[in-house]
Simulated scan of single mutants.
Amino acid sequence: MDPRSEVLLRQAELFQGRLLLAGLPADDLLGQLPAASGWSWHAGELQTLERRFNGRCSFGVAPPPGEFDAAVLFLPKSRELTDYLLQALATRLAGRPLYLVGEKRAGIERAAKQLARLGRSRKLDSARHCQLWQVEIEQTPAAPQLDALAHHFTLELEDGPLQVISLPGVFSHGRLDVGSALLLEYLDNLPGGRVLDFGCGAGILGATLKRRYPQSELVLLDVDAFAVESSRRTLAANGLEAEVIAGDGIDAAPRQLTAIVSNPPFHQGVHTSYQASETLIERASEHLVSGGELRLVANAFLRYPPLIEQHLGACQTIIERNGFRIYRAVRA
Results as ranks from 00 to 15, higher is better:
residue 199 G to W: 00
residue 2 D to E: 13
residue 183 L to C: 09
residue 105 R to C: 10
residue 129 H to G: 06
residue 81 L to E: 08
residue 43 A to I: 03
residue 38 G to A: 11
residue 52 R to L: 15
residue 266 F to N: 01
residue 299 N to K: 11
residue 97 P to I: 02
residue 50 E to Y: 04
residue 160 G to K: 09
residue 214 P to D: 00
residue 51 R to I: 07
residue 35 A to L: 13
residue 290 S to P: 08
residue 98 L to S: 03
residue 157 L to S: 07
residue 23 G to T: 02
residue 309 E to W: 12
residue 127 A to H: 05
residue 64 P to L: 09
residue 285 S to D: 08
residue 53 F to M: 06
residue 10 R to E: 11
residue 37 S to L: 10
residue 2 D to R: 00
residue 163 Q to P: 06
residue 286 E to A: 14
residue 269 G to P: 08
residue 233 R to I: 12
residue 97 P to V: 03
residue 119 G to V: 03
residue 100 L to N: 01
residue 36 A to G: 08
residue 15 F to T: 04
residue 170 V to W: 02
residue 214 P to E: 01
residue 291 G to W: 11
residue 98 L to T: 04
residue 127 A to R: 05
residue 270 V to M: 03
residue 129 H to P: 04
residue 231 S to G: 06
residue 88 A to I: 00
residue 222 D to F: 00
residue 211 R to I: 05
residue 65 P to T: 06
residue 271 H to W: 11
residue 245 I to M: 09
residue 325 R to H: 08
residue 294 L to K: 08
residue 233 R to Y: 08
residue 254 P to A: 07
residue 147 D to H: 12
residue 300 A to F: 10
residue 125 D to W: 09
residue 58 S to W: 04
residue 69 D to H: 08
residue 194 R to L: 11
residue 71 A to R: 00
residue 14 L to C: 08
residue 218 L to Y: 03
residue 39 W to H: 10
residue 24 L to T: 04
residue 63 P to E: 09
residue 262 S to H: 09
residue 228 V to C: 14
residue 160 G to I: 14
residue 282 E to I: 13
residue 103 E to H: 06
residue 328 R to V: 10
residue 48 T to C: 03
residue 325 R to G: 03
residue 213 Y to W: 12
residue 332 A to T: 07
residue 85 L to A: 05
residue 99 Y to G: 05
residue 172 S to V: 07
residue 97 P to R: 00
residue 194 R to K: 14
residue 237 A to D: 02
residue 120 R to C: 10
residue 159 D to A: 14
residue 46 L to H: 06
residue 115 L to Y: 03
residue 234 T to D: 11
residue 59 F to D: 05
residue 293 E to I: 14
residue 166 S to L: 10
residue 183 L to D: 02
residue 77 K to S: 08
residue 155 L to T: 08
residue 110 R to F: 05
residue 314 A to D: 11
residue 72 V to A: 07
residue 189 N to L: 13
residue 309 E to I: 12
residue 222 D to T: 04
residue 252 A to W: 09
residue 132 L to W: 02
